[in-house]
């Protein structure tokens, strides 16, 4: 019996990308990622596009079939690829939900908002009667700041922020314990982002939710998360308490990521010195040997090319995968 609500060990997700037989190629979208999330906690996951953060979230919910690794939810094994153990997902779909990035693409334009939220209630047979179903829908819509009037409208009648509220209501309809929030604020206007972030926080407090909050905007993630994991090219490079991570980053990638964020304060922006990384993220089809960050890392040497740095706990709760932690600090 483990004490964490969510436990992910050595998660791998490879996607086939052309080639036959021996020459078959794979995109290593997620490669050997391990972490845990406690009940009521928010773990943030940041990284650039293509680093595997979204895939991690989706694989956990078995929206993709995992290539390797083990995922335990509240002590129950959801999948354990090595031992060929796979749980029946239906009961767990009620306990784990997801909010998608694009509120424009993730809602069926032909369904009313009431039906979008109600569909989950139907699938899991949570309503006793028609009236009960209706009451539940209204109750959930009110929770996310919408009202009964909205239930009969279609998604196109709503603004982006309101649509994202519908997406959240849909996830909440089955009273889940754990929600994967996959870039839920990226598509929204700045003034609306803060509304949605506050709502996530309120809901967590009221319903005791646990979040995996995926985003590329580190300042927003820092705001909502207790701990943050940083991913680069399919691997987790650093994981720590959110204040610790921003104040004392250990991995050179985390450092450059933090310094690259434009500061909304002209005086600080003028004084700050940016670490501008050279080049682009390498293709995940053909990742560099050893440490995947070495091609852009100012500290890289032969050792980085030869061996993959181990994922280790450097300080209490501060994990990092780098050969040269001492050298770059």
């Amino acid at each position: 019996m483990s004490k964490h609500l969510i436990e992910v060990e050595h998660l791998r997700q490879y996607f086939p990308a052309g080639g036959f037989g021996k020459n078959k190629k794979f995109v290593r979208a997620v490669d050997d990622v391990s972490f845990y999330v406690d009940k009521g906690e928010t773990l943030g996951l940041v990284g650039e596009s293509g680093c595997g953060k979204t895939t991690t979230g989706r694989t956990m919910l078995r929206l993709y079939e995992p290539t390797g690794g083990k995922f335990t939810f509240d002590g129950d094994v959801i999948f354990d690829v090595a031992n060929k153990q796979y749980a029946n997902m239906l009961p767990y779909r009620k306990r784990m939900q997801i909010v998608f990035q694009d509120p424009y693409a993730s809602l069926d334009p032909r369904m009313t908002v009431g039906d979008i939220v109600g569909e989950a209630i139907d699938v899991h047979k949570l309503a006793q009667s028609k009236q009960d179903r209706y009451d539940q829908i209204i109750h959930i819509l009110e929770r996310v700041g919408l009202n009964s009037e909205h239930a009969n409208r279609y998604p196109h009648e709503f603004s982006g922020g309101q649509r994202q509220r519908v997406g959240i209501a849909r996830a909440l309809a089955v009273h889940p314990e754990f929600i994967v929030c996959d870039e839920p604020i990226s598509a929204l206007d700045v003034s609306i982002q803060a509304q949605v972030i506050n709502m996530f926080e309120d809901l967590q407090e009221q319903m005791g939710l646990t979040y995996l909050f995926i985003a590329h905007d580190l300042s927003a993630v820092k705001h909502i998360s207790n701990r943050i994991g940083v991913m680069y090219l399919g691997r987790m490079v650093e994981l720590a308490d959110s204040y610790e991570l921003v104040d004392r980053p250990l991995h050179p990638y985390t450092k450059s990521l933090i310094s690259a964020i434009p500061i909304a304060d002209p005086k600080q922006a003028r004084e700050s010195r940016r670490i501008v990384l050279e080049g682009d993220v390498p293709s995940p089809l053909n990742p560099p040997s050893g440490c995947t960050f070495r091609t852009r890392c100012p500290y890289a040497d032969e050792r980085c090319a030869a061996e993959v740095p181990a994922w280790r706990e450097v300080e209490n709760g501060h994990f990092c995968a780098c050969h040269h932690i001492d050298k770059c600090n």
């Binding site: 003034s191 803060a194 926080e201 300042s219 820092k222 204040y243 909304a264």
Partner: peptide, 25 residues
């Protein structure tokens, strides 16, 4: 004022609640 207030900042030391601009565009 609201716009500047509502951006999450990286350099906050304690957890502060964001002050959003209410309503819709």
């Amino acid at each position: 004022k609201g716009l500047i207030r509502s951006i999450p900042r990286l350099d906050t030391k304690e957890h502060e609640r964001l002050v959003p601009i209410e309503g819709t565009p």
